[in-house]
């Protein structure tokens, strides 16, 4: 669903949203239009020129969209066919409805506020499709979120599952976010002297200290838990048609279509165990080879290691 549409289509959709908005806002400053619709000066001028060319039969001068442009402000007339924006497409309707439902599900959200009432209106306009998002609420989530908000350091008791140890550490909490079904805390950890990612449900105790810290001015907005680094090993997965979802699901370096619906997916992996889990679960529908960084890796050997537990 993230396939980029051709430039021309995007241009058409932008204009179909832009025209009714301009009709509804006569005399609007061009600068405001550029900001709202994220247009460069040249793009806006081109769009306006294009609008002048749009009309309906019998195409007398009065049948074309009329753009009154004094250099700073714009007024649009005679755009009756486009007086309202088009309906939301399915991806658009889902994107905004699901995002709204997710945000309202975040613990502490105002369930009667503007977002909730906006969602009622939106859902009704979309025909009330039954769509909902649930987001868990681990015990210390609200404490952590409050500490992020006010930039206070927090002392955590944190359980590390792979070693079964609980350690106490003081951190500067920078971001809390929900991804892949879990709440995560991104924080600067004094003990590690580096940024660390914590699973909020594995926090066994959290105590907000009096110590303030200066929150970083700019976050690196992350859209995935794993952000590939150049030094990470690369692997090529050849998947059969039933496993093409792998390329959609994980961040990839490249995807190449092969014959008969097969795909070759190139990805970076920081932890070999992650790759082993992935390919062993996928099974015989996938073959894996290392392209760089871990030439000793062999899928067959990974399978053999697990099989040895079964005496096979």
């Amino acid at each position: 669903m993230s396939n980029p549409r051709p430039v021309a289509d995007r241009e058409i959709q932008r204009i179909l949203a832009l025209v009714p908005w301009l009709v509804a806002h006569p005399g609007v400053q061009k600068s405001e239009v550029r900001e709202r619709f994220q247009l460069s000066e040249a793009q806006l001028e081109r769009d306006l020129e294009l609008m002048l060319m749009v009309g309906v039969p019998p195409y007398t001068p009065g049948d074309y969209i009329d753009v009154d442009d004094d250099g700073d402000t714009i007024t649009l007339r005679m755009a009756d066919s486009f007086r309202r924006p088009p309906r939301l497409t399915a991806p658009e309707g889902l994107a905004v409805l699901a995002a709204g439902r997710a945000l309202v599900a975040v613990p502490g959200s105002d369930t009667d506020g503007p977002l909730a009432t906006a969602l009622l209106k939106l859902s009704a306009a979309l025909g009330n499709p039954d769509v909902d998002v649930s987001i868990g609420e681990p015990e210390y989530l609200s404490v952590i979120r409050a500490a992020v908000e006010t930039a206070h350091e927090v002392e955590l008791d944190y359980w590390t599952a792979s070693r079964d140890v609980v350690t106490t550490r003081r951190v500067q909490p920078t971001t809390v976010f929900f991804a892949e079904g879990q709440w995560y805390l991104e924080a600067f950890c004094h003990a590690a002297n580096d940024d660390r990612l914590f699973r909020v449900d594995r926090i066994r105790a959290a105590h907000t200290t009096e110590i303030r810290f200066r929150a970083p001015a700019e976050y690196e907005l992350r859209d995935a838990l794993y952000q590939p680094r150049d030094a990470d090993p690369t692997f090529a997965l050849t998947v059969d048609p039933a496993h093409r979802w792998v390329g959609e699901y994980y961040p990839t370096e490249a995807i190449e279509d092969l014959d008969a619906g097969y795909q070759r997916i190139v990805l970076r992996v920081s932890e070999l165990a992650f790759l082993e889990r992935l390919v062993l679960r996928l099974g015989a529908g996938v073959t894996v080879e290392c392209l760089s960084g871990a030439s000793e890796f062999s899928g067959a050997w990974s399978a053999a290691r697990v099989l040895s537990r079964y005496g096979a």
Binding site: L18, F37, Q38, P85, T89, E92, L94, F177, D223
Partner: peptide
């Protein structure tokens, strides 16, 4: 979720663009 479709919906609903804000949920 789907940034491109979300931006398209906002334009139609209110003539607004997405804003720069920390991500809360993916």
């Amino acid at each position: 979720l789907d940034a491109h479709a979300g931006a398209g919906a906002l334009l139609k609903l209110s003539g607004a663009s997405a804003t720069e804000t920390p991500l809360i949920a993916a």
